[in-house]
Design a protein around this nucleic acid. Structure first.
Lengths: 344, 344
DNA sequence: ACACTACTTTACAACGTTGCATTTCTCACG
DNA sequence: CGTGAGAAATGCAACGTTGTAAAGTAGTGT
């Protein structure tokens, strides 16, 4: 056991409460006293006991982050961004993996884990609009980047529809007309899913460009297949069926990387024969062969905003602000897979 | 605030201590009593307050994991494995990023973060043998996968040298003699680094095969360049200098992916002209073009063992076992980049 | 029926910190 | 020089849990 406030107080020649006041930046402490206390803290290498503080004040300084899996690059990068943002604010982050399963997601929110997180950042995949009520919890909760609208909580997400539209417009600009979309289906049942929203953006872009929709270009993958394997499989199927296409819009980057892989195997040249654009701007797309164009949805900003918003909620007393949905700006990242020299 | 033990005790008609006993699986509780308590817990949706428990018992059920960055796939996958293993044991994991900087690493260990982690899993990059004493802390500490031998702590690591040797032997087996190694330098000052050890394996393999060392084939990258960019740059330099080589041993997989990328750009065929093998077996190597052979160092097992060992240390009373170094088995994963059809 | 043992339950204090209420100090002002 | 107001410092209780030790209960052998 390390030194406690009592030890510090004794060394500094003050009361234990004064030590507490110094640590918590209570304004009315004389500079001299503050210095003596800080010196004692230094000398003893004192660290406050978070458990005790948490017990007394109801705050632990730890927030939770629930994501499907860190093995998915997008979520690893999101976690990185969240941890950085939280650290700047003096918070620790406990990471929980839900593996995208409904049960695990419900569990994560219901704070089945003994209560001691100050709040939770939650990136749901399986929960939908119908589960909104499950999100009504005592602990502050901020949703990240997916699904569930008009829920009872803040939601930091992305411009799914308009950025998808912009991505497809990018393909149209470079002269493509037969644009396949991978990862969505035309009559998906889940209106609020990223897939549906991005599909909607795709449809709008086509419509505005006066291109008629060809349903055979819309290629679903099972939700658990939003990865390289899924993207590759869908692409192979496209080719095998003899579908004519000159571009692919992959609904996320890992799908897109799978698409690139499959196109090489099928001896299809990128971007000459087929241009490819992904979604999310994960690091890997910078280094793929060819480098992959994509949509940067502002991941870092999402993380920063989400952490700040969660902190606000944690500090909120009584008068609760109505929940908000926040979407940072997006931008199209042009790289080799759509015929540009990658500059970033 | 949720219900407390007092509430449960009242509902179940027992003393608060009995509730505690039930929760902690104290053996001498009559089944009927246990059931009543459990029913009350269920009914009230009671969750123990971890802060209080932590204060009283000195345990929070949370361990720390300090890695350089989750953006590096290897560490993201390691974190995934650790979180899974910890969850099975009922522990939460707080993730801290050191960005590989010495200061941040020292900070992470010195538990600058207020004491409340039960223990720490630490994957150092910058700390070396000289910092061994800095690792003497009150809180249990287990090192993961890199550097520092004969330290004062348990160390779950990998067979750096012999697995590197096996990787190079694999290249020799398929007939390569001019094998470049990327990520190491011949007179590195840090004997305990992964780079040095893996280089040693490389040298041994050459020696046993009677191949003379050509120093121009040993290509360093700065430590902060163990990534795709570093691998690509080193490869481009190799080619630019007109060095003759028919294989590359990349000291980790991201370096290797950069090598693959650069070779394509240089119009060098893989594996026909140059075979490539990486190190670590990150997911991505499975899907690269071509898929990349590598060394599987038993990451999942490392995580599992490390968590178990940390738990043992946490539970240890007084009689401390001497620190151990544990290395799971490794194996060579043969994929397309060394001329095999990838089966996994 | 009685002691003895083993099982079951309980009372109480303590973990280290902070909120509240209170006391003590300092200094400007009448 | 006395007063009052605000600043600075303090004392005490309480947060919810568990360890210790002790009390109560049942079961066994004589």
């Amino acid at each position: 056991m390390g030194p406690t406030m009592h030890d510090v107080a004794r060394v500094a020649g003050v009361s234990i409460k004064t030590v507490s006041n110094v640590i918590n930046h209570y304004p009315h402490v004389r500079p001299g006293t503050r210095d003596r206390v800080n010196a004692a803290i230094e000398q003893l290498d004192y660290r406050p006991n978070l458990s005790a503080r948490g017990l007394r004040s109801g705050r632990t300084g730890v927030i939770g982050l629930a994501v499907p899996s860190l093995r998915e690059n997008y979520f690893a990068e999101l976690a990185d961004a969240v941890i950085r943002a939280a650290e700047k604010r003096g918070l620790g982050v406990m990471v929980e993996q839900t593996s995208g399963s409904r049960d695990a997601e419900l569990l994560a929110v219901s704070s089945s884990r003994p209560r001691f997180l100050d709040g939770l950042l939650f990136s749901p995949v399986s929960l939908g609009q119908g589960d909104a009520e499950a999100l009504v919890t005592d602990a502050p909760l901020v949703l990240l980047g997916e699904r569930i609208f008009d829920g009872p909580t803040d939601h930091v997400t992305m411009h799914n529809m308009s950025s998808a539209q912009a991505a497809v417009e990018h393909l149209i600009e470079i002269g493509r007309r037969r644009i396949a979309i991978i990862g969505a289906e035309l009559d998906g049942d889940d209106e609020a899913s990223s897939a549906s929203l991005r599909l909607k953006g795709y449809l709008r872009a086509l419509e505005q460009a006066g291109i008629e929709l060809d349903p055979t270009l819309v290629r679903p993958t099972s939700m658990s297949q939003w990865n390289r394997a899924g993207g590759a499989a869908a692409t192979h199927r496209l080719v095998a069926e003899g579908v004519d296409f000159d571009a692919v819009f992959a609904l996320n980057d890992t799908l897109g990387l799978g698409v690139l892989r499959a196109l090489v195997e099928e001896k299809v040249r990128v971007p000459d024969d087929v241009a490819v654009i992904g979604f999310d701007n994960i690091d890997e797309g910078k280094y793929s062969i060819p480098s992959m164009s994509t949509v940067d949805t502002g991941r870092d900003e999402i993380a920063r905003i989400a952490v700040d918003r969660l902190i606000e909620r944690i500090n909120e007393k009584g008068d609760r602000r109505p929940p908000e949905t926040i979407k940072p700006d997006f931008r199209i990242v042009r790289r080799e897979s759509t015929g540009f020299v990658s500059t970033e």
